[in-house]
Amino acid sequence: MIEAAMIWNEPNNKSHWNPELDPDWSIYADTVIRAGSAIAEMNPDVTRVLGGMSPIDAHWVQRMRGHGALDHVDVVAVHGFPLDWNLWPIHAWPDKIAEIEAVVPDKPIWATEVGVGSFGAEEVQVFGIDKTAELLLDRVPNVYWYSLFDLPQEWGAETRHREAEGSSYYRHFYMGLIRADGTPKPALEHYARYADRMGLMQWFHFEDPRLDDAVRWMKDLGVKKLRTGLSWADSFRPGALDWFDRQMEALADLEVLVTFCFTPEHLGVEAHHTSCAKDPQAFADFCAWMIDRYAPASPVKKEIRA
């Protein structure tokens, strides 16, 4: 059920990885080394993806190489939102890809989270999806649009500073192609033109009531690839495996890039999901468990590995 696995989400973004606890990202690099090794041990055919970076930062990638993390991933991923959060124009997408290619000539670059919201005007999102497709679909092997659904405002966005971010925070609730009430935006029709080549990135919350609707929409659109997440923190909730099983079974017809992230409060250096783990091996063990459950190696390869 899993084609590829991403090791954390936006680890160079303070909203998703606390840099005060890991100022040189050495703990994150150790986390990647351990998790990458664990995933390969369980199934060497699963593509390992470095946590999608945001901002796109060649110096950070070089730091990861210096720490040895790039030796344990197969793909380097970038995230970009030039009409919402980034300080560069949408037409710069090819240049941003080239910046990373220059320091990682030995690995493919995937755009695992791209998007334009409808916060200001829904027409802007229509322009954004067409321009993103024009600039990226023939430039990188994989592109994932964020997202299918708007995030309901009552759920809140997973950022460290929340409303203190001002309008940047509220843009999180307008990134979908479908409004929170289930009605499609104009950009959905435009996305449908690219759905067989441009994947979707959609987070599913624990026991998310939108799961079945998401699968129906993706089937109707002809989506082939999905990026989503399995939360390490959620794995400690009652009924977690039942939910994980239901989620992964529902997505079984898609090529899934799963993101492993979110630190359980009791296992973090601080009690927050953006904290590095007190023991990075515990996160690697979670990754191995999920791969063995949802993307086990073939019996022949298991025998060879043993």
Results as ranks from 00 to 15, higher is better:
residue 67 H to R: 14
residue 67 H to I: 07
residue 68 G to N: 07
residue 69 A to V: 10
residue 70 L to H: 11
residue 72 H to V: 10
residue 72 H to K: 11
residue 73 V to D: 08
residue 73 V to R: 12
residue 74 D to Q: 04
residue 75 V to A: 03
residue 75 V to P: 10
residue 75 V to L: 03
residue 76 V to D: 03
residue 76 V to H: 03
residue 76 V to C: 06
residue 78 V to E: 14
residue 79 H to V: 09
residue 80 G to L: 04
residue 81 F to T: 02
residue 81 F to A: 14
residue 82 P to E: 07
residue 84 D to S: 11
residue 85 W to L: 11
residue 85 W to H: 04
residue 86 N to Q: 11
residue 87 L to E: 15
residue 89 P to G: 06
residue 90 I to D: 03
residue 90 I to S: 10
residue 90 I to K: 07
residue 91 H to N: 07
residue 92 A to K: 07
residue 93 W to S: 01
residue 94 P to M: 14
residue 94 P to D: 03
residue 95 D to W: 05
residue 95 D to A: 14
residue 96 K to D: 00
residue 97 I to C: 13
residue 97 I to H: 00
residue 98 A to L: 09
residue 98 A to S: 07
residue 98 A to D: 13
residue 99 E to S: 08
residue 100 I to E: 00
residue 102 A to D: 04
residue 102 A to I: 13
residue 104 V to S: 06
residue 106 D to W: 05
residue 108 P to E: 04
residue 109 I to R: 00
residue 109 I to C: 03
residue 110 W to C: 06
residue 111 A to R: 00
residue 111 A to F: 14
residue 111 A to S: 11
residue 112 T to F: 04
residue 114 V to F: 12
residue 114 V to Y: 05
residue 115 G to E: 04
residue 115 G to D: 01
residue 117 G to E: 11
residue 117 G to T: 14
residue 118 S to D: 08
residue 118 S to M: 04
residue 118 S to T: 06
residue 118 S to Q: 09
residue 121 A to T: 06
residue 121 A to K: 06
residue 121 A to I: 01
residue 121 A to P: 00
residue 122 E to I: 09
residue 122 E to M: 07
residue 123 E to G: 05
residue 125 Q to V: 02
residue 127 F to I: 10
residue 128 G to V: 02
residue 129 I to A: 04
residue 129 I to E: 15
residue 130 D to W: 08
residue 131 K to S: 05
residue 131 K to A: 09
residue 132 T to N: 08
residue 132 T to G: 11
residue 133 A to M: 04
residue 134 E to R: 13
residue 135 L to H: 03
residue 137 L to E: 02
residue 137 L to Y: 08
residue 140 V to A: 06
residue 140 V to S: 03
residue 140 V to Y: 00
residue 141 P to D: 10
residue 142 N to T: 13
residue 142 N to E: 03
residue 143 V to D: 00
residue 143 V to K: 01
residue 144 Y to A: 01
residue 145 W to G: 01
residue 147 S to L: 08
residue 147 S to G: 03
residue 148 L to A: 11
residue 148 L to R: 13
residue 148 L to F: 13
residue 149 F to T: 09
residue 152 P to G: 15
residue 154 E to I: 14
residue 154 E to P: 02
residue 156 G to D: 13
residue 156 G to Q: 14
residue 157 A to T: 09
residue 157 A to R: 13
residue 157 A to C: 14
residue 158 E to W: 15
residue 159 T to M: 10
residue 159 T to K: 07
residue 159 T to H: 06
residue 159 T to C: 13
residue 159 T to R: 13
residue 160 R to M: 11
residue 160 R to I: 03
residue 160 R to D: 07
residue 163 E to K: 09
residue 163 E to F: 14
residue 164 A to E: 15
residue 165 E to Y: 11
residue 166 G to L: 15
residue 166 G to W: 13
